[in-house]
Amino acid sequence: MEIAVDKRQNCAILKIKGDVDLYSSPQARSQIIALVNNKQFNLLVDFTDVTYMDSSGVATLVEALQLTNKNKGKLRLYKLRQAIRDVFELSRLDKVFDIYEDEQSALHGI
C-alpha cells in the first residue's frame, strides 16, 4: 500500500493505492494521526486505487472519523469501488461515513 498526501484548499487528500489490510492499515493510521497532530482536521480519502479493505482498514477510518469530529473537522471518502462499499454496508457504517462519488463533490462545502 502507498499513500500520497495532497493539500487542497483547507483539506489534506490522502490518495491510497493498494490493499488496506492487517499488514498495511497501521501505516495508514500513522499518517492520519500525523496529519491530525499537525492540525489538519479536514481529511479526504481518495479510494480510486484502493483494491481491497478489511475490518482493520474500517477500524482505522472509524478512528480517523472520531479524531476529525473531535476537532470539528470533516472526514470524507470518495470513489469507492463496489467491493469496498460492500464492506461498509456489511459493517453498517455506510451511513456513518460521508461517502461521495468523486473529488469535486467531496470538496464541496468543506
Binding site: 478489511d54 475490518s55 477500524a59 482505522t60 472509524v62 472520531q66 456489511l90 459493517s91 457504517l93
Partner: peptide
C-alpha cells in the same frame, strides 16, 4: 454491537454475515 461505533471488533460480524 454495531450501533456502538468504535474502531475494531467487526471481524466476527463480517464472517458471520457473509
Amino acid at each position: 454491537e454495531l450501533d456502538d461505533v468504535r474502531p475494531g471488533g467487526l471481524g466476527v460480524h463480517l464472517i458471520k454475515s457473509v
